[in-house]
Amino acid sequence: MIIGLDMMGGDFAPREAVKGIHLYFSETDSPATLLLTGDEAQINPLLQEFNIPADKVKVVHTTQVIDMHEHPTKALKEKQHSSIAVGFHLLATGKSEAFISAGNTGAMLVGAMYSIKAIEGVQRPTISTLIPKNNGKMGLILDVGINADCKPEHLNQFAILGSLYAEHVLGIHQPRVGLVNIGEEEGKGNILAQGTYPLLKENAAINFIGNVEGRDFFTDKADVMVCEGFTGNVILKMAESFYEMTQSKGIQHEHLDRFNFENYGGTPVLGVAKPVIIGHGISHAKAFSNMIRLAEKMIASDLLSTMKSSFEGKAQAQ
């Protein structure tokens, strides 16, 4: 198993990425081989400092970095020797089996869409976020930002992608799918929700349980909650603020501590042909380690093949 990792992405690169690699190797009996893209003059001394085994990593030297605030499409076109662009090239050509970065989110999304491309039949790839439930379980909300405006058909596909991810990576048997809405009754909501409900209800590929409201996010009513990216991003940022508030006030609680994004690493781009994982720009060692673990799970579960099979008929029907 070979996993690509952008060493120059994130506010604390490359040190925290190397620390994350060290943490990953220290906690894993059979680690993957890591293909590291970035400036070897910065990376190699850190690999030596943290005693990273030379036989388990390979540095692919790059001369450019895509900064956080650069225009994604322009940057990828003009900086083809950047750590992100080279990472996608290695993934697209089969040199690696997954690619991870905590760098420019827009560049990661553009790279995933145009270098790796969507699974045939998927109209729009999506990203999700994990939501800790009050009973210790995890829920999934998608989309959380890259599709601010959607059609009912998009949300219907998000439900399939989210269900497959919840089942094969999170280990949730027959995940329950809920439509984020302003009421429980069928027929509630705006035009998007009203148009999406019957599609989800008739979708034999998912276990649809109806509408879920804001008060249901942290309960065990649904495992996968579907909405357009505008609403999903508001939910995500609100959940993140809970954790930030508890930390600033010195509040320690087992449930609230589960809102720390470092525990989960990053989010995969669901619906593209190969595993691409996007991390938070402020990721530290724990987040990098968990992103590598997530990539391992996605590869080992053969999730992408399952997703491709699920959309084969839809691609032929289009």
Rank of each mutant, 00 (worst) to 15 (best):
M7C: 11
R15Y: 13
V18H: 04
D29I: 12
Q48A: 14
E49S: 13
V59W: 00
Q64E: 15
T73V: 13
S83I: 10
L90K: 05
A92G: 14
T93M: 03
S96I: 15
A107K: 02
L109P: 04
A112Q: 01
A112N: 05
M113L: 14
Y114Q: 07
S115H: 15
A118L: 13
G121A: 11
P125E: 07
T129Y: 03
P132D: 07
N134E: 13
N135F: 12
G136P: 01
G139F: 01
I141E: 00
I141D: 01
L142W: 00
N147F: 00
N147W: 01
A148S: 01
P152K: 03
Q157G: 10
F158V: 14
I160P: 02
S163V: 08
Y165N: 07
V169H: 09
L170S: 11
V177M: 05
G178L: 10
T196Q: 05
P198Y: 02
P198E: 02
L200H: 01
N203F: 02
F208M: 06
N211K: 07
R215F: 12
F217T: 08
F218R: 03
A222H: 05
V226M: 07
G232H: 02
K237G: 14
M245V: 15
T246H: 04
E254N: 09
L256S: 14
L256R: 01
R258K: 12
Y264C: 05
T267M: 07
P268G: 08
V269D: 02
K274R: 15
P275A: 10
V276R: 03
I277Q: 02
D302Q: 09
T306G: 03
M307D: 04
F311G: 01
K314W: 10
